[in-house]
Design a protein around this nucleic acid. Sequence first.
DNA 1: AATTCGATAATTTTCGAAAATCTGACATGG
DNA 2: CCATGTCAGATTTTCGAAAATTATCGAATT
Lengths: 214, 214
Amino acid sequence: MTLAEKAYVSLRKDIVEGSFAPESPLRLADLSERYGMGFSPLREALNRLQAERLVTAESLRGFRVSSRSLAEFEDALNARLLIETEALRLSIARGDDAWEASVVAALYALRRQARREDGDVDELKTRHHAFHRALLAACGSDWLMDFFERLYAATERYRIPALTAAGPQKRDIDAEHGAIADAVLSRDAALAEQLLRDHYLRTAATIRSGMAAA
Amino acid sequence: MTLAEKAYVSLRKDIVEGSFAPESPLRLADLSERYGMGFSPLREALNRLQAERLVTAESLRGFRVSSRSLAEFEDALNARLLIETEALRLSIARGDDAWEASVVAALYALRRQARREDGDVDELKTRHHAFHRALLAACGSDWLMDFFERLYAATERYRIPALTAAGPQKRDIDAEHGAIADAVLSRDAALAEQLLRDHYLRTAATIRSGMAAA
DNA sequence: AATTCGATAATTTTCGAAAATCTGACATGG
DNA sequence: CCATGTCAGATTTTCGAAAATTATCGAATT
């Protein structure tokens, strides 16, 4: 892996996880010291992240972490619902046995990690992402999967700070995931879409109250 | 405008218009000579284009123009239908008087340019793009507009070579645009969606036969 | 007191060269 | 004849410094 790719992965992670505050400037000198590399690979990474809307750039004034607002969250969430319900429908229509197996496997891996008391939070997030990706993976559209990844990263930026602010949850997220998987495996597209939609709307409600609290 | 931004605009145009063949390597030395700048701004532009899927990159093996295939075109077209019908629906529901006026203006400008015998093809394409953007512009979603721009560029790569190969058209595209605008201005969302869908499906049919001929 | 101007510092942007890596040809051994 | 290793050339990637631009601060002016 080249330095530029490492810079891209690290920066993306740090932005999504909130290590850099929204709107804070991303100065090359600071980043260079933080990640131990020159300007070139950093600029490459920043340009890619700009195209993904995680950072903004102004000519000759450098880069900043993109702003965060309730309106932008709502926008990203609505786009997600549009993209993911369509992708899920396609996936259910087109997925084969191997796809079903991958959904089962992803759910299993997610649950296993969720039940570990000593669990690594990073690993849990990775598996959560993997489960949601597995649901859509058979949709057959590179563009929809691309949009899914973008929107997932964009909304993930809100999930983390909001959830800590909102306190303990009353939801049984594990059960929601299980219900979605069941509907998918029985190829009930309408039910699966409805459950996925509800799943996101519930998360959105939590995040809204979390942002209001923060 | 910085050199990197110029490089981005130029490269994007040259790729979309087909000045570089799909899959052809984009060597830094060549590009440096062609555009009269060093490697740094070119790499920045290429990285942004990579995030937009117009170019692909392989570690330590440089950049290539993304491939072109009927399957990828169909994928982009279907994504476009999903995104644009939704954006159009929202636009019709939310657009105000100023938006209506901008649609009328964009259609007028497009028609004016289309009727000029000595017309600049570049200008016509710009206005065509502007008209379709104006239709959706009141949707209120940055993400949907972002996806629209990406998909427009992706499909534009197919429109140009296919149309020249397919020969003269029997369609009255001007009338199709007019009908869409009429439906939009009368706020008939269902009709507008249907007309937009038909408009794209007809273009898609032309492109399919054009690709088959080529 | 507020504003403008100029000099200095900080920062981004760009270049040119060095380092790292890949490609293809050629020789060598099985 | 085929496989394998090696070397030179081509290409990408990275660095460090130079160039260009913006930001900051104090003095002069209104």
